[in-house]
Simulated scan of single mutants.
Amino acid sequence: MIVRAALPLLTTLGPAVTTAQVARAAGIGEATVFRAFADKDALLRACVAEVLRPDTVLAELAAIERGEPLPRRLTTAAEAVLAHLDRLGAVLGVLHATGHGGRDRHRADADDHPGRNADDRPGRAAGDGAPGRDADREHSRPDRDTATEAVRLAVADLLAPDADRLRLPVDRLAALFLALLTPRGPLTGHPPDPAELVDLFLHGALTPAVAG
Rank of each mutant, 00 (worst) to 15 (best):
M1F: 06
V3G: 02
A5Q: 04
A6D: 02
L7Q: 04
P8E: 05
L10K: 05
L10W: 10
L13D: 15
L13Q: 15
P15E: 08
P15S: 15
A16Y: 11
T19L: 13
A26D: 04
I28F: 09
E30S: 10
E30F: 03
L44M: 08
R45P: 01
R45T: 00
V48T: 02
A49K: 01
A49Q: 01
E50D: 07
V51Y: 02
P54F: 00
D55M: 02
D55H: 03
V57Y: 00
A62I: 04
A63L: 06
I64E: 03
R66K: 12
G67V: 11
G67M: 06
L74W: 03
T76L: 15
L82C: 10
L82F: 09
L85S: 13
D86S: 15
R87F: 11
L88V: 12
A90G: 10
L92S: 13
L92M: 14
L95R: 14
H96M: 12
T98E: 15
G99L: 05
G99N: 10
G101M: 11
G102T: 09
R103P: 02
R103Y: 11
D104L: 15
A108C: 05
D109G: 09
A110M: 01
H113F: 09
N117R: 13
D120V: 04
R121T: 15
R124N: 05
R124A: 12
G127W: 00
D128E: 14
G129K: 04
G129Q: 07
P131L: 15
P131Q: 13
R133A: 14
A135L: 12
R137H: 14
H139E: 14
S140M: 06
R141W: 11
R141C: 14
D143Q: 01
D145I: 11
A147G: 07
T148D: 12
T148V: 03
E149K: 07
V151S: 02
A154D: 02
A154C: 01
V155T: 00
V155N: 01
D157K: 04
R165S: 15
V170H: 08
D171S: 10
D171L: 08
L173Y: 03
L173P: 01
L173V: 06
L176D: 15
L176C: 13
L176P: 03
F177I: 06
L178D: 09
L178N: 07
A179K: 05
L181K: 05
L187Y: 12
T188C: 09
G189A: 07
H190G: 11
P192V: 09
P194V: 03
A195H: 12
L200R: 14
F201C: 11
H203N: 11
H203K: 09
G204N: 05
A211T: 14
G212N: 08
